[in-house]
């Protein structure tokens, strides 16, 4: 068995995402899947899982090889909380369940990737604070967090990861740029490596603001 690259997408479906933003996210996911399928490296290894969170946590796509993924249409209620903490707890449980560890006789999976997209700030702040150390212990290769729109709070996301990008607007164009950037992170392993630079994410496109 070849190593799998498990990727967890954690998507905010709180009330404020209703309308154009969620339509744009669905289109972005479709484009991300399309570009991963057209990449022979990703097609060989990437597996995708999608968790949507608002007042509830819904695993809308269980871990599936990208060749077999049938994307569900992600919808959101008219109103609802942003239970990011609970969503991340769910992700921690998923990784415990999904990630195959190496054994002396069999190779395990790559370290997984987590992508978080939110347009607000966590309403379950205590749970959020508590889950951060647990999430770190899950040993993700990369955590990318996207703070979309004016109400998102990048500083909360900075507690999770150094890779926080913020989108000024929540229209189709900026989401598609974001998902394109995510898909490029999957091809970096197959590209030439510089003689001096270390292995890093590709530079984000100009339209994204990286939060420092």
């Amino acid at each position: 068995m070849s190593r799998r690259l498990l990727t967890y997408l954690c998507i905010d479906t709180s009330g404020s995402m209703n309308g154009e933003p969620i339509v744009a996210v669905n289109a972005g996911l479709q484009a991300l899947l399309g570009s991963l399928r057209a990449n022979p490296y990703a097609l060989d290894s990437v597996h995708l899982s999608i968790t949507a969170f608002d007042s509830e946590i819904k695993e809308v796509l269980p871990m599936t090889a990208i060749a077999d993924v049938m994307l569900p249409e992600i919808t959101c209620p008219k109103s609802g909380a942003t239970l990011l903490g609970a969503a991340l707890e769910h992700i921690c449980e998923q990784t415990q369940r999904d990630v195959r560890k190496s054994t002396p006789t069999e190779k395990g999976d790559w370290k997984p990737i987590l992508v978080i997209l939110t347009d607000g700030k966590p309403t379950d702040t205590l749970a959020y604070s508590e889950v951060i150390p647990r999430l770190r212990a899950c040993d993700f290769a990369t955590i990318v967090a996207c703070a979309a729109g004016p109400k998102a709070d990048p500083s909360q996301l900075k507690r999770l990861t150094d890779h926080v990008v913020s989108l000024d607007t929540m229209d189709a164009a900026s989401f598609s740029k974001f998902f394109q950037w995510v898909s490029e992170t999957f091809s970096k392993d197959s590209q030439s490596r510089g003689a001096t630079s270390s292995v890093e994410l590709p530079p984000p496109p100009a339209e994204l603001n990286v939060v420092l």
Partner: peptide, 13 residues
């Protein structure tokens, strides 16, 4: 091949 060189770290392996 299927020889494991580092059980804990796939990148190192």
């Amino acid at each position: 091949g299927d020889k494991t060189h580092d059980v804990n770290d796939s990148q190192r392996d």
